[in-house]
Amino acid sequence: TEEYEYTDEQQAREAAREWREKGYTVTIEEHNGRWRVKTG
């Protein structure tokens, strides 16, 4: 599992979409105004 943090929701969603296209399972969670994208 890798985790990436973004301050911008749009960036987080874009990144998540790219990971999904590569076949990863992706979770996005908002935490204190930051967006965490977890792949695994």
Rank of each mutant, 00 (worst) to 15 (best):
A16D: 01
T1K: 10
H31G: 05
E18Q: 14
Y6V: 02
W35C: 01
E21Y: 05
Y4P: 04
Y4L: 08
W19M: 08
E2G: 14
A15E: 04
E29K: 06
H31E: 10
E3M: 14
T27L: 08
R13W: 09
Y24F: 12
E30P: 07
W35L: 01
D8L: 05
T25N: 11
G40C: 14
Y24Q: 04
H31T: 09
I28W: 03
R13V: 10
V26T: 05
K38Q: 08
T27W: 11
R17Y: 06
Y6Q: 01
R17H: 08
V37E: 00
R34Q: 07
E9Y: 13
E21T: 07
W35A: 00
E3W: 15
V37K: 00
R17V: 06
E14T: 10
D8P: 01
A16E: 04
E3H: 10
I28K: 01
R20Q: 12
K22G: 04
K22Q: 09
R20Y: 08
G33N: 05
W35F: 06
G23D: 02
G40L: 15
K38I: 15
Y6P: 01
R34I: 14
T7D: 15
Q11T: 13
E2Q: 15
H31W: 11
A16L: 06
E30I: 09
K38W: 08
K22V: 03
G33E: 03
R36G: 03
K22L: 10
T25G: 05
R17F: 06
G40V: 15
E9V: 08
G40N: 14
V37Q: 00
K22Y: 04
H31S: 10
V26L: 02
E3P: 07
E21F: 06
T39H: 10
R20P: 00
E2K: 14
V37L: 09
E3Q: 10
E21A: 10
Q10P: 05
W19F: 12
Y4A: 06
Q11R: 09
T1D: 11
Y6K: 01
E29A: 07
Y24I: 06
R34N: 07
A16Q: 03
E14L: 09
E14C: 10
E30Q: 11
K38F: 10
H31L: 12
R17L: 08
A12H: 00
R20N: 06
H31N: 09
G40R: 15
